[in-house]
Amino acid sequence: MSEKRPAALVEVRGVSKTYRDHVAVHALRDVSFSLAKGEFAAVVGPSGSGKTTLLNLVGALDVSDSGLIRIAGHELTATPREELADFRLRHLGFVFQAYNLFPVLTVLENLEFVAVLQGMAAAERRRRARELLAAVGLAGLAEKRPPELSGGEQQRVAVLRAIMTEPDLVLADEPTANLDSENAGILLDMMERMNREKGITFLFSTHDPRVMERARKLIRLRDGRIE
């Protein structure tokens, strides 16, 4: 391995994860891959192949049994569990399959949420939030509450929230699973644009072939192993 090559943004090496309820489920076995900064990558594989498990580990939401995960120079696998929340707050953005937004907050406030946790000044976070909404033509939704939005609009707002604080990496577990193909297309267009314009690295999962096509890099999982 060349010492001169810039370190990858995401480095996953020999990671395994076994769930032990009644029976042991080997969700991930010896998974290794890396992502460069600015990547637009997808984890793909059939249901139960370990996509969510992998995203949870890279997203510092869960801990692996063995192996090494390093993101932006931070070795997650050596970080105490109670410090992971702070790592997520400072370095990661998240888009979930559904129920991303807080129903009591307006769209604008939802965008502000993570920025508030980060301690960003009120004026700055409001400016950023309005700018982002305007950039994707959603300025009219600013004062609306999530329940008034369509599913597609909700996911777009969720993507904006994830990139609000310009994290090192945005993780999106099946962000289009609940969307029709038209809305899925719009969402991917938006993610691609943010990736291109702001250089934000995306790692999303899907088992939809049309979504896979949009990724520039594919990480294929089957039965917890990289194919």
Binding site: G59, A85, D86, R90, N100, F102, L117
Partner: peptide, 16 residues
């Protein structure tokens, strides 16, 4: 519960 899950995923700490 799910909402607290999202909050904490985004980096909200237990004491918050």
């Amino acid at each position: 519960v799910r909402e607290f899950g999202v909050m904490m995923s985004l980096g909200m700490k237990p004491r918050q």
